[in-house]
Nucleic acid binder design. Sequence first.
DNA 1: TGTGATGTTGAATG
DNA 2: GCATTCAACATCAC
Length: 262
Amino acid sequence: MPELPEVNTFKRYFDESALHQKIARTTVFDDKIIRNMSGTAFEQLTQGRTFTGSYRRGKYLFARLDNGHDVLLHFGMTGDLNYYADEVDRSKYERFVFQFDNDFKLGFDCPRKFARILYLEDREAYIEEIKLGPDVLELSEEDFLVLTKKKKGSIKGFLLNQKYLAGMGNLYADEVCYQTKVHPASVVSAIPTKKRKAIYAKMQEVIRYAVDRNAYYKDYPEDWLWQWRDADAKAPDGSSVEIEKIGGRTTYSFPGWQKLYQ
DNA sequence: TGTGATGTTGAATG
DNA sequence: GCATTCAACATCAC
C-alpha cells in the first residue's frame, strides 16, 4: 500500500489517534521489525512517553516523543496502523502495539514484515545518514531540473530512488510516466527540458490529488493507469501494454503511446 | 503450487 | 566516490 499519499494518510490517522496520549505499555511481538535495537529495549524506551507530533518525509513517518526522540515508522510493502479498543479488532499481523492511558491501542500491522521501525535519538542525523532526498511535494521545479540533467539511468529508476526525491513508488511512478507520455525506460538526461518540466508538474499534480483524497483509489479519475493495470490494458490510442522490469520493479507501459527517449 | 507483490538494503559492477 | 543494477528480505494471496 504505502507510497507517499498512503503514508500521508497514515500520518493523519496517527495524529488523530495517538497524539498527546501517554503510552502506558508497549508490546513487541516481532523483534526483527525493530531494526536498531531489541524489542525489549524499544518497549522500555517508549513506555511512559507521550507522542507530541509527527513529521512525514516521503514514505518515512517520524513520530516525535516528549523527550525529543523519534519513533520512525516505515511501512514497507504491507504496513498499516490500527487504532482500537476492542480485542476483536486486533490484527493477526500485529507486530507491535502501543497501549495508551485511555486503554485504546495503536497496533502496527505488517503481514510481510518488510516494515522498518527504528528508535531514533536524532532524526536529522538519521535522514542525513540514509541520504533521504527531499519530499516530492517540497521539491522545487528548479531543483528537479538540476537533478535530472545528467542522470544516465531510466526515468523510472530515477523516480523510485528515494535519495533523489522521497515519496514516489512503483504505481505513482508508472502513473506519471503514462500521463506525460514518456516511456519509463527513457534515459533521464535524454528527455528534453520541456518534457522534464511536464513530468515535474504531473508528479506534483498526481501526488497532490492522491493526498487530497486520502489515497483512496476509488476516488481517482477513471482514466488513470492503475485502474486497468493488467495484461489486456490498452492506451487511449489502442496500443497494447508492455510489462517488463524497469528500475527493478514490474512496470506497465504502452510503447505506442509513451515515447522512449534515449 | 508456483509466482509475484504500492519497498529498501547492501553487495557487486561500471 | 558516484551511479546503477539486482538479489535478498518474509509472508501471504491468487
